[in-house]
Every structure is written in C-alpha cells, then in structure tokens.
C-alpha cells in the first residue's frame, strides 16, 4: 500500500523487489491490498448472516450503475455507488420485512442488475463493450487518483468495522436477542448493506464486479476453518485476502495472466489447501465433530467450577 501512497504523493517509485519494482505494479499492489483486506472484513459479517452472495448481487447492480453513468455521462464510480447502495438497502429491506427470502431478493437484483447494465450500456456512446473493463477489473491500469479513491473508501470501511464491529457481531449472531436488548438492528443491517456496496464499488477496478464477491467470501471461508475467535476470523480473513492479492499479482506478472482471476484463484486454492491440511491436522472442523451431541455430559467431564458457590465478586450489589 505504501507504494501506491508514495505514488500519489508524487514521490519516486519505491525500491520494491520483483514483481513490484515497476510503478504500475505498485499502484496495483496498493489498490489490491486495500480490497484484499477490506472485502473479507465485510464478508465475515455477511457469511455469518448467510448472505454470502450479497457481494455478487450488489456487483451486478453496480454494473447497471456504471452503465447508467456512461449513458448520463457522469463519473461511473458515483452512479455505481448510488445504485449499489440503494440496491443493498432494498435487499436488506426485502429480507427484514420477509417480503422475499434472502436468496430470492439477491436473485432479483442479480439478473435485473446485469440485464439493466447491458441494456443501458447498449444505449451509451461506447456501446455494450464500454462496461467490459468493469466485469473483470483492470487493476494493472489503475492510475493514482483511482488508487487514492480506493484507499479512502478502504479507510472508511476499516474505521466503520473498528467502530461498529462489536454491534454488528451482536446482530449477526442473534438478531432477535439484539432486538430485544434494544440494539439498532435495522440501522446495523443497513450499515452492513451500505458497506457492502462501498466495498463492491471500490473493488470494481481491482477484480471486477463478477469476482468481487469471491474476495468477500473465500478468505472468510478459509479463516473460519482456522480461527477460534471472531476477532481471529476477521484478522485471518484479511491476512489471507492480502496474501491472495500479492501472490495473484505475482503470478499474473510472471505468466501474463488475468490479474483479477489470478487473485481469486489464489484465494480459492488457499481454501482448498487449508481444507485438506486442516482436515488432517485437526482444526476447528474436527473439534466440531468431536463435540458431544446436545444433552450429553460436558466435554470436560467434571466441570471445573463444580464447587462454585456463587459468592462471586459483586454478589448482592445488584
């Protein structure tokens, strides 16, 4: 990321080793790392909410937003942001009012979005081909202002997760109890929807709208199999996302591959490797298999607090 920031500040290209010695690779690395870290952060909450495909649905809507921007001749990032945010909020609204199941609501936008995108683009001056760069991303051609935008959006996502992560956690693990406790469940879900939209738009030029959801889900799926805590899942998912970006870009440079696809394939490969190795060496998945069925004796046999007499600190203080 420092390479990109240095570039933005007008400094010389950083002396990074291969494959990041060239300026365009440093800009790609900066934009990629921001997305590689931010997308799994948001994805961790979405996966727990069983909305793994949310990013994909929003991505298709963002495509319609880009096409609308091309047609109206406004900056496509803004039109994509508006359409994606409104779409994300409407999915959340449909879900929370039980007007449609989550997958049905997503399917509506999935197909409506891509159809709308193609139709709108066909009327724009560039024709349908104008939206192609956004389908698969164009990370190797991002310029400094685009990197700056991605960095700013990424900072917003990190700050939001740091500030509201605990509340979002309480909501995604048990929405009803959060509601009874008086937490702002509707506002929390709306925030998550908007953060998803921001992530999708930020990631548009890195991996493209068709692959953005992969970075929201694959590192999370891997990390969930390794981590014991939610905090660890968040950190692990962000780390795996960052690794996928670095390794994917290196592979793309070495063998002249499509960078967005390479990044996602590294993330998918990491999941497969962790799944195979984890299954052999005993990670969380095996722990679950060993856990006794509900209603049987505790794992430890004898509870360490058997003799606890409830005279604990604060007793009687109300």
């Amino acid at each position: 990321m420092s390479g990109g920031l240095a570039g933005i500040a007008g400094l010389a290209v950083l002396p990074l080793p291969w494959p990041f010695e060239r300026e365009y690779m440093q800009l790609a690395l900066a934009a990629g790392l921001v997305i590689g870290i931010c997308a799994p952060l948001i994805g961790t909450f979405l996966v727990q909410q069983r909305l793994s495909l949310m990013g994909d649905g929003i991505g298709h809507l963002a495509l319609a937003g880009i096409a609308a921007g091309l047609l109206l001749e406004v900056w496509p990032v803004w039109s994509a942001m508006v359409v994606a945010a409104v779409g994300a909020l409407s999915i959340e609204w449909l879900r929370s009012r039980r007007r449609a199941t989550s997958d049905l609501a997503l399917a509506l936008w999935f197909y409506g979005g891509i159809a709308g995108g193609v139709v709108l683009a066909s009327r724009s001056t560039g024709g349908s081909g104008a939206i192609l760069p956004y389908l698969f991303g164009s990370i190797l051609t991002v310029d400094r202002s685009e990197v700056l935008l991605v960095v700013l959006l990424g900072l917003g996502i990190v700050v939001a997760v740091a500030a509201f992560g605990r509340t979002l956690f309480a909501i995604v693990i048990d929405e009803e109890s959060a509601r009874v406790a008086g937490l702002p469940v509707g506002a929390g879900n709306a925030l998550l929807a908007v953060l998803t939209a921001v992530t999708v738009v930020a990631a548009m030029q890195v991996v493209g709208v068709l692959l953005v959801a992969a970075l929201m889900v694959l590192p999370v799926a891997t990390s969930r199999n390794l981590a014991r805590s939610f905090r660890g899942t968040l950190a692990g998912a962000a780390g795996i996302g960052a690794f996928a970006v670095v390794a994917g870009l290196a592979a793309a440079r070495q063998w002249a591959l499509a960078p967005g696809g390479s990044i996602v394939l590294v993330a998918a490969g990491t999941f497969a490797v962790v799944g195979v190795v984890g299954g052999r060496t005993g990670t969380r998945r095996t722990v679950l298999v060993e856990a006794p069925a509900p209603g049987t004796a505790p794992v430890t046999g004898r509870d360490p607090h058997e003799d606890h007499d409830h005279d604990h600190p604060g007793s009687g203080s109300g």
Binding site: R228, S229, R284, V287, E290, A291, P294, G295, A297
Partner: peptide, 13 residues
Amino acid sequence: DLRRRPVGALSGG
C-alpha cells in the same frame, strides 16, 4: 474455564 473455547465446540448444556 471455557472462555477461550469456540462456542461451536461446546456441549448443549
């Protein structure tokens, strides 16, 4: 004593 255990790995009780 279970504070660091993942909740998914605990018994029903």
